[in-house]
């Protein structure tokens, strides 16, 4: 997409400079043809495949019926994230999201106060946390490791600091790691 955009950009700017610096250069093409080629044909060639591609790519980011991957609930509040794991006995972690690598996960995003947005820049996609609604985002982490996530919708004074960590574990280690983390947080609270 970046290459395509650069080519189009260079094309239009070159045309502009050519018609100015080489008077009569474009006069061989009739005015009507200029309009049809530039105004209809060019956008048509570029846009139709692009939109088609985007629709297909967009499909993979959306939950498909009949297939329900593991779910994690992300609840936003000024200015923290709380994650619930309904598939793991409803344990919860704060400001740290634990997830297994190599498998799609549905994040159910909601908010308790204002609008926030759930975003992990290294994984594709983001979704708003809207009070009163639950939005679903499908993400997948290919490799284990630590990643950074952050709130992406302006939510007041603490917006810049509303970050969270993402810990991606190997699938076989995930349950144990999550239990350890939740237990550690639980004991911290006490």
């Amino acid at each position: 997409m970046l290459t395509g955009a650069s080519v189009l950009f260079v094309l239009v700017i070159t045309l502009f400079l050519l018609v100015i610096w080489r008077p009569g250069w474009g006069a061989g093409v009739s005015p009507g043809r200029w309009l049809v080629l530039g105004g209809l044909v060019l956008p048509g060639i570029v846009l139709i495949p692009l939109v088609a591609y985007a629709l297909i790519a967009g499909e993979s980011l959306l939950p498909s019926p009949g297939h329900t991957p593991p779910r994690i609930e992300a609840v936003a509040r000024q200015w923290t994230w709380t994650f619930h794991y309904p598939d793991h006995g409803g344990v919860e972690t704060r400001n740290v999201l634990h997830m297994p690598a190599g498998t799609p996960i549905d994040i159910l995003v909601s908010s308790q106060d204002v609008i926030h947005a759930f975003w992990i820049p290294r994984f594709a996609g983001k979704i708003d946390a809207v009070p009163g609604h639950v939005n679903r985002l499908r993400i997948q982490a290919d490799r284990p490791g630590r990643y950074a996530g952050q709130c992406n919708e302006f939510c007041g004074l603490g917006h810049a600091g509303m970050r969270f960590d993402v810990v991606v574990d190997r699938p076989e280690e995930f349950s144990a790691a999550l239990a350890r983390a939740a237990a550690a947080e639980g004991s911290e609270k006490k």
Partner: peptide, 22 residues
């Protein structure tokens, strides 16, 4: 995406005006 079409029509009308003028 379709918005690009009427915009492109204008841009190329301006280019054509320059191409056919002095």
């Amino acid at each position: 995406a379709i918005v690009a079409v009427p915009t492109a029509v204008q841009v190329f009308a301006w280019l054509a005006t320059l191409a056919h003028g002095r």
